[in-house]
């Protein structure tokens, strides 16, 4: 039996919104630590790993580990029926064939209830080891989104170059070339909007902008994004809600 109550439906809405353009169907693995998700896109070149910790819910109850196989497009449809400030409750049996969602609106005393049919998804989980990255860049997520979108107009790929001075995003396309450089700076009033670079050695790597723009859909989850780069290792784009 799973019963998880979120004070704000917007949290789940944003999470699903961020993932649904990367993967189609995926398992929500529920255990007593929370709800986790790991999935790859169809080409298997990108991987999304999401974790909603049980502390984020009030209350959270999960007696048994359950995998909820969900089509994210369907889940998006149902979540659109929830208003951002609704209280959202997820419910599922121990061996569920559907996921029950209840949206409570305290202002209007409205209770909406939806069921989503679940599916069996055979998904392999990849073990991701802790990695020492050559460069770790912390920056405002809106800034990263903007850079990716802007450069997308010129090219399909972007080169990220991290040095002691700053981080340079550059691209070259048919119509010309462009680059955006961010220098380290500290925002004392809003620390989440600071740009910080931790570097053990300079790195320069190229990534697909289509995927990065896709990743940026998680920007609404957090004002801050962390990019971790190393040679021969995939880029890690991390959105951790700033508390």
């Amino acid at each position: 039996m799973l019963e998880a109550r979120l004070e704000q439906a917007s949290v789940l809405k944003k999470v699903v919104e961020a993932i649904k353009d990367l993967v189609q169907d995926c398992n929500f693995d529920c255990n007593d630590a929370g709800i986790a998700l790991q999935a790859m896109d169809n080409s298997h070149v990108a991987l999304v790993s999401m974790h909603l910790k049980s502390e984020g819910f009030s209350p959270y109850r999960c007696d048994r580990n359950i995998a909820l196989g969900i089509n994210l497009t369907s889940l998006t449809k149902v979540l659109r029926c929830a208003q951002n400030e609704d209280i959202l409750t997820l419910k599922a049996d121990d061996a569920p064939d559907s996921l029950n969602l209840v949206f409570e609106n305290s202002e209007n005393d409205r209770i909406s209830e939806y069921d989503i049919k679940l599916m069996d998804i055979d998904q392999e989980h990849l073990g991701i080891p802790d990695t020492e990255y050559a460069a770790t860049i912390s920056m405002p997520s809106a800034e990263f989104q903007r850079i990716c979108r802007d450069l997308m107009a010129l090219s399909e790929s972007v080169a990220i170059e991290a040095t002691k001075e700053g981080v340079k995003f550059s691209c070259t396309g048919d119509i010309g070339s462009g680059s955006v450089t961010l220098r380290q700076h500290n925002n004392i009033e809003k620390p989440e909007l600071s740009t910080k670079i931790e570097l053990t050695e300079p790195v320069a790597l190229t990534f697909s902008l289509k995927y990065l723009v896709n990743f940026c859909k998680a920007s609404s989850l957090s004002a801050n994004v962390t990019l971790s780069l190393s040679n021969e290792v995939p880029l890690l784009v991390e959105y951790v809600p700033f508390i």
Partner: peptide
Amino acid sequence: NVSRGVRDLGKANTRGMAKMT
């Protein structure tokens, strides 16, 4: 049942990109 994003991503050029696995 496939979102537009997923469909668009299918058109992305993944040549030279290594698989996660």
